[in-house]
Design a protein around this nucleic acid. Structure first.
Lengths: 345, 345
DNA sequence: ATGAAAGCGCTAACAG
DNA sequence: CTGTTAGCGCTTTCAT
């Protein structure tokens, strides 16, 4: 695509390519006369010279490219923020992020790793689009960074969301508003979600701190979509008043969306009659619901940045221990004090 | 990262690097003895040889990488599907897609183009995350493909959604169900959305075909979020019965979501009392609403594929004329016949 | 059927 | 202060 080489610039400036290289790389700023430097820069500019990174990489053995292996950029709305974080960090440090989507398929992962290894990327990041345990694919170079997943074995720098703390934050928000009968609309056990158990731990911890005895009937499980949330919330809301929850902590925003539906169908207003906290901060749901949903945000952008910085060697990481990234609560309008009938106010 | 070179393989096999190259590239399948070929392959396998693409690229002047410049992978849920389409096409043809997010910032675009040019990508795709007119950034190589945006000047291979046809498809769906008073909840004129005007054209065309005189009062504009949809739908639904629409075609699914809210608040059931069609097929909204929303899908995946195939030279494209990709209707449960009171049934 | 040799465009010692 | 030189690892004629 580009045509002009360093030797062309050298010819115009009347110097050797070595001098051009020195000047343009900045390494020779104190070895080359100011005059020559100016001449070289001028010639380069005039000729529209752009260095050939391929040749440079062959020589220096570094490409300035970081490979990012992801399982699915297609279906999740979170992917973007994670990739954006990684991408921004790469750009900040003058590197190029190379994205390869493997669809979670093992043979594609092999292919991808081969391709990236062949392209001599300087480092790799192995990403999943939700918090899970992942087997390191064969061939993944030592030192690769795990993003939003924990390696099943071996020692790798890793960053995952602090779901325990997020569960605690959500519950604390409700406790602080005065609620004592707080239900947790959890994911199905069969889904095997790490986040599910961790958020539950956080939930229990905060209840304990607040001196609230957890009611097992308020820990229910359902499908993680709106339909699941609607069904689970419906059952809870049909409980007799003295056993009914005044607040719902939902495993994710989609379930919270279903909970809204269940509440509306029963003529309950949010947050006057029922408080709801979600998880994920999915823009298209949380902010668009009526009223806007208070939820816990997954720090995808920050995790992406962290992983890239570690991959670049710009940040230290203990490969023995995953880094837990805090999940901040996003306050909107779905939380209020318990309704008067509950006696908790 | 990898260590073993072609010369190592050659030494083990007792041949020259030229022979190894010939064998491994497949170019020598009929020039090199089967015996030698076997020996070479064995040696390569045993040594775990992986070719160095950087060296190969320097020699062949082709890198096998395609650069994709996008304005924002971060905030839109569509990005993923477009990137997935492009990525899949690249992989199918043994190429690597290199993604660079410029955030729509002109100076970042320059940087990115410089970086990609420097890396000697074989081709570039210039993508926007929604249908719009875009200035070709300076330095964008000739022959680059425009994805989901039309160049403001110059002649470039281009692919955009067929929004006119999509608007027609949505309206036709409603007409076919028997509706005659069909409102179009449009985006604000100030947003300057190409899609807005095109969908309106499709809407008018189908009404004309059906012999329905368009009622100007049924073409309303509002913000493109749920709040806008709720407000606009609310006004329409408060009209006296004889002027009230029995069906709503919304500019996007978020507005449709708001329309649901407006309907619910007035005790109207969907689709019994009101039919609604959206646009975008945003998974997290359309499929999760209650009832699931009939909508028109944006062909992001297909557009991504198309653009990549053109970039790879695997598909012909007329640079003078944008390729319009059809937007299919996705039938779910938000469309039914007009309510009895309307007299249209 | 195979090998020798000449680069692709750049960087980094080492000379001068 | 600047130029010469020797590759980085591979592909590709051209000889043999």
């Amino acid at each position: 695509m580009a045509r002009v080489r360093m030797s062309d610039v050298a010819a115009v400036a009347g110097v050797s390519t070595a001098t051009v290289s020195l000047v343009l790389s900045g390494a020779g700023s104190h070895r080359i006369s100011a005059q020559t430097q100016a001449r070289v820069r001028e010639a380069a500019e005039a000729a529209g010279y752009a260095p050939n990174s391929v040749a440079r990489s062959l020589r220096t053995q570094r490409t300035g490219m970081i490979g990012l292996l992801s399982d699915t950029i297609a279906t999740t709305p979170f992917a973007g923020r994670m990739l954006a974080g990684a991408n921004d960090a790469a750009r900040t440090h003058g590197r190029l992020m190379v994205l390869v989507d493997t669809d979670g398929d093992a043979s594609r992962e092999r292919q991808a790793i081969e391709a990236l290894t062949g392209q001599r990327v300087d480092a790799m990041i192995y990403a999943r689009m939700w918090h899970q345990v992942a087997d390191a694919p064969v061939g993944l170079p030592q030192g690769s960074v795990f993003l939003d997943c924990r390696p099943s074995r071996g020692s790798w720098p890793t960053v995952v969301p602090d779901d325990r703390d997020g569960g605690a934050a959500a519950t604390r928000e409700l406790v602080a508003a005065g609620h004592r009968r707080i239900a947790y609309l959890d994911a199905p056990k069969s889904a095997g979600l790490i986040a599910s158990a961790l958020r539950h731990q956080g939930y229990l911890q905060v209840l304990a701190e607040a001196g609230i005895t957890p009611d097992p009937a308020l820990h229910v499980r359902a499908g993680t979509d709106a339909e699941g949330g609607r069904a689970a919330a419906g059952e809870l809301l049909d409980l007799p008043a003295e056993r009914r929850p005044t607040a719902l902590f939902c495993f994710n925003d989609r379930m919270a969306m279903g909970a809204y539906t269940a509440a509306h169908r029963r003529g309950l207003r949010i947050p006057d009659d029922l408080s709801i906290v979600g998880y994920d901060d999915q823009q298209l749901i949380a902010a668009e619901l009526d009223p806007p949903l208070t939820t816990v945000a997954l720090p995808h952008y920050e995790m992406g940045r962290w992983a890239m910085e570690v991959a670049l060697g710009e940040r230290e990481a203990d490969p023995a221990e995953p880094h837990h990234m805090r999940c901040p609560i996003i306050r909107r309008d779905s939380v209020g004090p318990p309704p008067p009938w509950s006696g908790d106010r």
